[in-house]
Design a protein around this nucleic acid. Structure first.
Lengths: 131, 131
DNA sequence: ATGCACCCTATAGTAGCTATATGGTCAAGC
DNA sequence: GCTTGACCATATAGCTACTATAGGGTGCAT
């Protein structure tokens, strides 16, 4: 199949697929006589894997690690769990940050609404809040 | 004060302060005879404002909007609230995403741990999960 | 006078794409 | 047979918000 179809099936953009090729995340496919990239089902599988990883927030670097682990299937699966668990920790920590942030913003947004900028509580809070 | 002291007091890095100057977020300060940037308390106030905004996740573009609103204090404060409320919505939505993500990762990490990569449930799940 | 912390500029790099410019390919319709 | 339009190609620059690197000057203490 051509790159457009692959993009539609995998849920990635055409440009992203080409970008992943230049960075080595997917292998360069064979080309048609006129130079079009021609893909096979394995490519779709690979891209689906990549899309899922990205949706779960794994970095390209982490994905590379996961991919290199899949290279030889007899390795222990513990390293996979390690990567996933570490990433989960990152996510939890970001979640905490965002929750605190949401509360702060909640307070901020509630504090004002109708005055003049000169005595806006939001701006005042932003200027004076401590670290 | 010099840039190092300003950095220490404001909680920003020296390079970031210079970067903010080149992008116009803060005014260029006067210089000492030898070319050192010399800052005054207003600069500290401005930087504190900037740091707070960044900590709350406002983009540089949003901060610019907020700053331009502070230019004339007689404007209605409603636009400030609009920006903050819109940002709060963004944060809430990211929070939702992360929560779903955390659950997915929880399941993933729980599903495996001791096998070989060849039959790792995490990798399998990543390869086959639907959109 | 020498060491050290601090300051300066300019330039390139980071992640993960996205956008722009310019041009070739291919099937359908007239 | 020719055009139209969707699709494909490459190369290059741009995005956010910084960070890193290279190469050099300043100011104070020992």
């Amino acid at each position: 199949m051509r790159i457009g179809e692959l993009a539609a099936l995998s849920g990635m953009k055409v440009v992203t697929i080409r970008y992943y090729e230049t960075t080595g995340l997917i292998a360069a496919p064979s080309r048609s006589r006129s130079g079009y990239r021609m893909y096979r089902p394995e490519h779709l599988q690979r891209l689906t894997f990549l899309r899922r990883c990205r949706e779960l927030g794994f970095s390209i670097k982490e994905i590379r690690e996961l991919l290199s682990l899949t290279e030889n299937p007899r390795q222990s699966c513990a390293s996979v769990t390690t990567i996933a668990a570490r990433h989960l920790e990152d996510v939890r920590s970001k979640l905490d940050d965002l929750q605190r942030l949401q509360q702060a913003l909640d307070g901020l947004v509630a504090s004002c609404g109708t005055g003049r900028v000169g005595d806006c509580k939001i701006l005042h809070a932003l200027a004076t809040m401590p670290a």
